[in-house]
């Protein structure tokens, strides 16, 4: 098993773990963390792929991608946390499930 394959496998495993948590954990914080774990898995795969060109210098492009990905993930995590906090203030709970689907809208203000 090459190093790339190992990274890919571990990354995939992390991705699935995150996916599982996202779906089963009702708490919003858990869900956000789960997404972070999933994204770490994806980055693992990307970093591993950088080795595929062989030689001492790995392919820089995947690294650039991972960096971009981290930026995206960090900002979206921040946004998600802010949103979760706001939901907590509005509803008194930070859990989320089908029961929350309410279809009413009246334009406030």
């Amino acid at each position: 098993m090459s190093q790339t394959d190992l990274y890919t496998l571990v990354g995939s495993a992390l991705f699935v773990i995150g996916l599982y948590a996202l779906m089963t954990r009702p708490h919003l914080l858990h869900k956000v963390l789960a997404l972070n774990i999933s994204s770490s898995g994806v980055f693992f795969v990307l970093v591993g792929i950088a080795r595929r060109v062989g030689g001492p210098v790995p392919d820089p492009l995947p690294h650039a991608m991972v960096l971009t990905g981290i930026v995206v993930t960090v900002s979206s995590t921040a946004f998600a946390l802010a949103l979760a906090k706001r939901i907590y203030t509005e509803t008194g709970t930070a859990a989320l499930d089908a029961a929350d689907v309410d279809v009413g809208e009246s334009l406030g203000g």
Binding site: L19, Y20, L22, M23, T24, P26, L96, D97, A98, V101
Partner: peptide, 15 residues
């Protein structure tokens, strides 16, 4: 449809 809206269903479906 309420079943489809649940996270667990969605996850299973995605999986």
């Amino acid at each position: 449809e309420i079943g489809f809206l649940a996270w667990a269903t969605a996850a299973s479906a995605a999986g």
